[in-house]
Amino acid sequence: MSEYQYYEFLAVDRPLNDRQLAEVRSLSTRATITATSFVNEYHWGSFRGNPDRMMERYYDAHLYRANWGTRRIMLRLPRTLLDLDVAEDFCVGDQVIARAAGKFLVIALTSEDEDGDWDPTSDTPMSALIGIRSELAAGDLRPLYLAWLAGHTPPTAGELEPPVPPGLATLTAAQRALTDFLRVDNDLLAAASETSPQPEKATDVSRRLAAWVKQLPVAEKNRLLLRVVDDHAVAVRMEMLRAFHDAHTPNLPTSQRRTVDELLDAASRHRGDRKRRAAARRAEEEARRNEARALAREQRLDELARDEEAAWLRIDALIATRKPSEYDAAVTLLTDLHALSEREGRRGAFTRRSQALRHAHARKASLIERLCRAGI
Rank of each mutant, 00 (worst) to 15 (best):
residue 2 S to M: 13
residue 8 E to Y: 02
residue 15 P to M: 04
residue 17 N to D: 15
residue 17 N to C: 12
residue 18 D to F: 12
residue 19 R to C: 12
residue 19 R to Q: 15
residue 21 L to G: 06
residue 22 A to T: 12
residue 30 R to C: 13
residue 40 N to A: 14
residue 40 N to S: 13
residue 41 E to R: 14
residue 41 E to F: 10
residue 44 W to C: 03
residue 44 W to K: 11
residue 45 G to F: 10
residue 46 S to L: 09
residue 48 R to V: 08
residue 50 N to H: 09
residue 54 M to Y: 05
residue 59 Y to A: 12
residue 60 D to V: 02
residue 62 H to C: 05
residue 67 N to R: 10
residue 69 G to S: 00
residue 70 T to R: 14
residue 71 R to V: 03
residue 71 R to I: 07
residue 74 M to W: 09
residue 75 L to C: 03
residue 77 L to K: 01
residue 82 L to H: 06
residue 86 V to I: 14
residue 87 A to L: 04
residue 89 D to W: 13
residue 89 D to F: 14
residue 90 F to W: 05
residue 91 C to W: 09
residue 98 A to Q: 03
residue 101 A to F: 09
residue 101 A to L: 07
residue 103 K to F: 09
residue 106 V to A: 03
residue 107 I to L: 05
residue 115 D to C: 04
residue 124 T to Y: 03
residue 124 T to D: 07
residue 127 S to R: 02
residue 128 A to Q: 04
residue 134 S to Y: 11
residue 138 A to G: 05
residue 139 G to V: 03
residue 146 L to V: 02
residue 148 W to I: 01
residue 149 L to D: 01
residue 149 L to F: 04
residue 151 G to C: 08
residue 160 L to S: 02
residue 161 E to F: 12
residue 165 P to I: 02
residue 169 A to P: 04
residue 171 L to V: 00
residue 172 T to G: 03
residue 173 A to L: 15
residue 174 A to R: 00
residue 180 D to I: 12
residue 180 D to W: 10
residue 181 F to M: 07
residue 185 D to R: 00
residue 187 D to I: 01
residue 187 D to W: 02
residue 189 L to Y: 01
residue 193 S to P: 04
residue 194 E to D: 11
residue 196 S to W: 09
residue 197 P to K: 02
residue 208 R to V: 06
residue 210 A to I: 13
residue 214 K to R: 15
residue 216 L to Y: 09
residue 216 L to H: 00
residue 217 P to D: 15
residue 218 V to L: 15
residue 225 L to H: 14
residue 227 R to I: 00
residue 228 V to M: 15
residue 232 H to L: 14
residue 235 A to R: 11
residue 238 M to R: 06
residue 241 L to H: 06
residue 243 A to L: 14
residue 243 A to H: 13
residue 246 D to F: 08
residue 246 D to M: 10
residue 248 H to C: 06
residue 251 N to I: 12
residue 251 N to G: 11
residue 253 P to T: 03
residue 253 P to K: 08
residue 255 S to H: 12
residue 256 Q to M: 09
residue 256 Q to L: 12
residue 258 R to A: 00
residue 262 E to H: 06
residue 263 L to V: 03
residue 268 S to P: 06
residue 268 S to D: 15
residue 272 G to F: 15
residue 273 D to Y: 12
residue 274 R to S: 07
residue 278 A to Q: 14
residue 293 R to F: 11
residue 295 L to D: 14
residue 298 E to K: 07
residue 299 Q to T: 13
residue 299 Q to P: 08
residue 299 Q to G: 10
residue 299 Q to C: 09
residue 300 R to A: 13
residue 300 R to H: 12
residue 304 L to I: 07
residue 306 R to V: 13
residue 306 R to N: 13
residue 318 L to F: 07
residue 323 K to V: 09
residue 323 K to S: 10
residue 328 D to G: 08
residue 330 A to E: 05
residue 341 S to T: 04
residue 342 E to G: 10
residue 346 R to N: 12
residue 348 G to N: 07
residue 349 A to G: 10
residue 350 F to M: 11
residue 352 R to K: 13
residue 367 L to A: 00
residue 368 I to H: 07
residue 369 E to H: 11
residue 370 R to Q: 04
residue 375 G to Q: 01
residue 376 I to N: 11
